[in-house]
Amino acid sequence: MSGLTQAHSVVAPSTASRRISGAIVIVYAIITMLPLLWIFATGFKSQSDAIAYPPKVFADPSLQGYVNLFTTRSRQTPEYMASLPPPETWYDELVRKQNMVIVGPSKFGARFMNSLIIGFGSTFLAVFLGTLAAYAFSRFRIPLADDLMFFILSTRMMPPIAVAIPIYLMYRELGLSDTRLGMIILYTAVNVSLAVWLLKGFIDEIPREYEEAAMIDGYTRLQAFRKVVLPQAATGIAATAIFCLIFAWNEYAFAVLLTSGEAQTAPPFIPIIIGEGGMDWPAVAAGTTLFLIPIVVFTVLLRKHLLRGITFGAVRK
């Protein structure tokens, strides 16, 4: 890491410039994180606190949003409520206070699971295929390589909405509408172009002499790829995986159009959580909060790779 820093700055930054840049970073972080903090806080408010005007920054904490997120409920007459046995759980009790009973679980769990499967599945496939393709483009003499690379990139130039209808029709014919497999294929196709381009850059940076040395030492190309190229491309692969996951995880346009039931992901589901008489904002905020967790965890886990940088220290130049 220190080597990297030195490479970019000739002199060490002064204390003053350090402080100023630190302050700028902190202010920027606060500005960008404020909406997230607000969503996080809203998830723990009651419906009335959430829509109060003027807005309440601090409200009595309530788990109502989270309970509503995971359940479906129905309103009952006071007589019926009185006839029930005492509530068995804390969330039963919370719901009954609003004169409602829990009818069953909501679809949030299933939608969240869809997001996990489709997001991570397509990320894995895009990075896997992207790494192999990028390696091939980087190392082999491929006819029309430049044109192929441009073609791969061009698939990303069109806005999703422009291809949404043809894809919708095609998927209906193929029976891929509203299936997880269909969504995984679609997101993989979109992401693989990004993955190939990013990873080709990283792999180009790895001298081919490394693999050649391994091949002379008795390894096959595939073994050399695994033992020599992959460890050194880890940084690039991690970065690419994060970009791919962020896209697949947050994707909204295709998800709205192509999924409605079985394979619906969380993004189209969360904003339409309706409570009695309008949006159930605490539940929406709770869903959004939970929705953010996997991507934060994934990014934090891979952060080590992102920061480590690529070491080319053993190069004699």
């Binding site: 001298p207 002499e209 490394y210 050649e212 040395a213 091949m215 002379i216 030492d217 008795g218 390894y219 096959t220 020599v228 460890p231 050194q232 070491t311 080319f312 220290g313 053993a314 190069v315 004699r316 130049k317």
Partner: peptide, 20 residues
């Protein structure tokens, strides 16, 4: 024959060691 089957050793002009 591929390099692995030739039984030779090579010291390269550059990039000699695996940094990882």
């Amino acid at each position: 024959l591929p390099p692995a089957e030739r039984d030779v050793a090579f010291v390269f002009q550059q990039y000699s060691l695996y940094p990882h």
